[in-house]
Computed example of a mutant assay.
Amino acid sequence: MSLPATLAEIVDDFGAVSDADKVTMLLEFSRELPDLPDHLREEAMEPVPECQSPVFVSVDASDPGAVRLHFSAPPEAPTTRGFASILQQGLDGVPADDILAVPADFYHDLGLGSAVSPLRLRGMAGMLARIKNQVRTQTGADPGASPTPA
Score class of each variant (00 low, 15 high):
Phe106Met: 04
Arg136Ala: 09
Arg81Cys: 09
Phe106Asn: 01
Met124Phe: 04
Leu87Asn: 00
Met124Gly: 07
Met124Arg: 02
Asp97Val: 13
Asp92Lys: 03
Thr137Asn: 15
Ala101Thr: 10
Pro54His: 11
Gly90Trp: 00
Arg136Thr: 11
Ser62Ile: 07
Leu110Phe: 04
Ala77Leu: 06
Leu119Phe: 14
Asp105Ile: 00
Arg81Gly: 07
Thr137His: 15
Leu121Trp: 00
Arg68Ser: 13
Tyr107Arg: 05
Asp63Ile: 03
Gly65Gln: 11
Val116Pro: 06
Pro118Glu: 08
Ser114Asn: 15
Pro78Gly: 06
Val57Gly: 04
Val116His: 02
Pro95Gln: 07
Ile99Val: 10
Val67Glu: 02
Asp92Leu: 07
Ile86His: 00
Pro75Tyr: 12
Pro74Arg: 09
Asn133Ile: 10
Ser85Asn: 09
Pro75Ser: 15
Pro64Leu: 06
Pro74Cys: 03
Ala129Phe: 14
Leu87Val: 03
Phe56Met: 11
Asp92Phe: 03
Thr137Lys: 15
Leu87Cys: 06
Leu69Ala: 01
Ser53Asp: 11
Arg136Lys: 12
Leu69Lys: 08
Gly90Arg: 01
Ala84Tyr: 02
Pro74Asp: 11
Val102Glu: 01
Asp105Ala: 10
Arg68Glu: 12
Leu110Val: 07
Thr137Leu: 15
Gly123Ser: 11
Ala66Lys: 03
His70Ile: 07
His108Ala: 14
Ser58Met: 11
Arg81Ile: 02
Gly111Trp: 03
Val57Cys: 08
Val59Gln: 04
Gln89Pro: 11
Pro78His: 07
Leu128Asp: 03
Ala125Glu: 13
Pro54Cys: 06
Met127Val: 01
Ser117Trp: 09
Asp98Lys: 14
Ser85Tyr: 04
Ser85Lys: 04
Pro75Leu: 12
Val102Phe: 02
Gln134Cys: 12
Ala66Ile: 03
Val94His: 05
Gly65His: 06
Ser117Cys: 10
Val116Ser: 03
Leu87Gln: 01
Gln52Asn: 13
Thr137Tyr: 15
Pro54Trp: 10
Leu87Ala: 06
Thr80Tyr: 03
Phe83His: 02
Pro95Cys: 08
Gly126Gln: 09
Pro75Met: 12
Ala73Leu: 00
Ser58Pro: 08
Leu69Ile: 06
Ala96Tyr: 00
Met127Tyr: 04
Gly123Met: 07
Glu76Ala: 11
Phe106Asp: 02
Ser72Phe: 04
Ile86Cys: 05
Phe83Gln: 06
Pro78Glu: 07
Met124Pro: 07
Val55Glu: 05
His70Glu: 12
Val102Asn: 00
Pro78Asn: 08
Leu128Met: 05
Asp98Asn: 14
Ala84Cys: 14
Ala61Asp: 06
Met124Asp: 06
Ser62Ala: 14
Pro118Arg: 08
Leu128Asn: 01
Ser117Leu: 09
Asp92Trp: 05
Gly111Arg: 02
Gly65Glu: 11
